[in-house]
Amino acid sequence: MANEKEMNEILDKFHSEIPGFIAASLVDLDSGMTLAVRSNRNDFDLAVASAYNSELVKQKQKIMKALNLTTHLEDMILTLGDQIHFLKLVTPGTFIYLAADRSSSNIAIVRTVVNKYSKPLTV
């Protein structure tokens, strides 16, 4: 796992390369706690969003188990009216949560940038 400085550098890259970047965090799946955060908006409660999204990931994993799927969860894309929310599992116990403005960005850009820089978090 990357150290705190490396985690923050990765989130800074998301901020600089994703148009409409709102916020991003590295989240511990079991506890829902953030390990690193970066946000452009004071009104976006990243701790709360990260915690609830950890529940979303856990529920999807339960669904996959109930369906006897033998694959693994890579990422989840949620599109809201004005935002894109992207969750990428980087280890079995951590995931990246990122939010971006839909009017400035698109799913392909978000996914490409997150995949480009998330590799150091998988080790």
Score class of each variant (00 low, 15 high):
Met64Asn: 06
Ile107Cys: 00
Met33His: 01
Gln59Tyr: 13
His72Trp: 05
Ser25Met: 03
Tyr52Pro: 00
Ile10His: 11
Gln83Asn: 14
Ser103Gly: 03
Gln61Cys: 04
Ala49Leu: 11
Gln83Ala: 14
Ala100Phe: 03
Glu6Ala: 14
Ala47Arg: 10
Ala47Trp: 00
Ile22His: 02
Val48Lys: 12
Thr112Arg: 14
Val37Tyr: 00
Thr71Val: 11
Thr70Trp: 04
Leu80Lys: 15
Asp28Pro: 00
Pro19Thr: 06
Lys13Ala: 07
Lys13Glu: 13
Asn8Leu: 15
Phe44Arg: 10
Tyr97Phe: 12
Pro92Leu: 06
Ala100Met: 01
Gln61Thr: 06
Ile18Thr: 03
Ser50Ile: 05
Asn3Cys: 09
Ala47Cys: 00
Arg41Asn: 14
Phe86Cys: 03
Asp101Asn: 12
Ala99Gln: 05
Phe95Ser: 01
Phe95His: 07
Leu35Gln: 08
Thr79Leu: 14
Ser39Gly: 12
Ile109Asp: 01
Lys62Asp: 09
Ser105Gln: 01
Ile84Asp: 05
Glu74Tyr: 11
Arg38Ala: 14
Tyr97Ile: 08
Val123Gln: 13
Arg41Val: 07
Leu35Arg: 07
Leu87Ser: 05
Phe95Ile: 01
Ile77Phe: 13
Thr94Leu: 01
Asn53Cys: 13
Val90Pro: 07
Leu78Asp: 09
Glu6Tyr: 04
Lys88Val: 00
Asp45Ile: 03
Gln61His: 01
Leu89Trp: 02
Met33Glu: 05
